[in-house]
Nucleic acid binder design. Structure first.
Lengths: 215, 215
DNA sequence: GTGTATTTTAAACAATTGTTTCAAATAATA
DNA sequence: TATTATTTGAAACAATTGTTTAAAATACAC
């Protein structure tokens, strides 16, 4: 009936039309957003026929969602893994864990890697209030918040749950803002390099958290 | 020649077609973004003919820019005024000035006022990398940064210029993130009300700044 | 090989987009 | 009032949009 996408079971060779479309979607949508990319742009990049989008995904928006869901899951897993890794070393300190959480994502944005662009697209989506807001943020802010709060309370036992949640949110603020406005950061902070930026953020976040624990 | 918009000098009565279009643009674009609003949506809301957009502004994008430029200027002025006001009272402290800067914008977002929606649109625009990024951020991050750095160094004389800029950027981070993700904030911080949120941000920011000054 | 299912293709679809046209209406000026 | 200039209006414009169609090509099973 409305089973647009045929079963397509099996591996399909990793360079099938379906996969090429997903790759094209990842690149183009991140560059120009949903409305900025036409179906013909996608099929042009993927070297396939216009009808392929509807044949395999059932529509432009379905392709968008499919690509999006994968990326969110990917980012989410990576972030949780980073926390676990940072907590797993012999003597984890607040600063070392903060650095682990902050360094890599910011570096991805700094070097304008695809990973950084995906995050920008995600924020854009949430601001645009398009479909996915709930789905994204749920997995994001439930799974990840739980992990982060638990780790933080291990590192700074004086914090109760309420305080830890506030702290995690503020660390997120300090990380995501320069993440989104990386170019602007260096524009208004002349004579500062990438490492100094990271050092500052880690220092500032740690100071805030320590002050919370002290009062 | 390409003088699409006739001179239109004089007051025009404050409810002219031109003004109604600007009002409609402010509301609709903030709700659904540039691509989400058609010329017919605008002229429908403004109760005028489709051709009016091109007649008065020379195109949909020109109307968008006009509306945008006004709002940015407005926000910028208001923010600088807030800093001046907070610094003008008898004994301004770091905390009192931070509170003044942070409280009102967040309240606007919390109450879902138009002012809050405009800021979201601005961030969206910067992320979308549409035309205005440079223009906005220049006025924004040049004028405002200068004012804020000066005020901060008065309050905390131990900070040099470099430190003060970093501090201002981090305060901005702590403010803008919950501004954008207000709903998510309260979702992941159950049992916290608006005042507690503001108190936390002020406390956290002040602690970071004081730590910078102390080292 | 034959026959069936899957994939690919070019063409056309209907709807919406921003913009233009030009005549009618209104305001302003003399 | 007569003569401009300005503003409004309905209609049409060309271009692009996402999607569908139906025939051709390919793959697969037997």
């Amino acid at each position: 009936m409305d089973q647009h996408a045929p079963v397509t079971q099996g591996d399909a060779g990793k360079d099938s039309v379906r996969d090429r479309l997903l790759d094209a979607a990842e690149v183009l949508f991140c560059e120009r957003g949903f409305d900025g990319v036409s179906v013909r742009d996608l099929t042009g990049q993927a070297n396939c026929n216009v009808a392929a989008v509807n044949y395999y995904f059932g529509g432009k928006d379905k392709l968008y969602q499919e690509m999006f869901k994968r990326q969110v899951q990917d980012i989410c897993c990576r972030q949780i893994a980073r926390i676990n890794e940072a907590m797993g070393v012999p003597n984890p300190t607040l600063e070392s864990v903060l650095r682990e959480i902050i360094f890599m994502p910011l570096l991805a944005a700094y070097e304008k890697q695809q990973r950084g662009r995906i995050m920008r697209l995600m924020v854009r989506e949430v601001l645009n209030k398009t479909v996915h807001g709930e789905t994204i943020l749920e997995a994001f802010h439930t799974q990840m918040m739980t992990h982060a709060v638990q780790a933080l309370r291990t590192l700074v036992p004086q914090l109760d749950d309420k305080q830890a949640r506030l702290a995690v949110f503020s660390v997120d603020s300090l990380k995501i803002h320069p993440f989104l406005f990386m170019d602007e950061f260096f524009a208004v902070n002349p004579g500062i390099n990438f490492d100094e930026m990271v050092n500052h953020i880690v220092f500032f976040a740690a100071a805030g958290i320590r002050a919370m624990a002290a009062r």
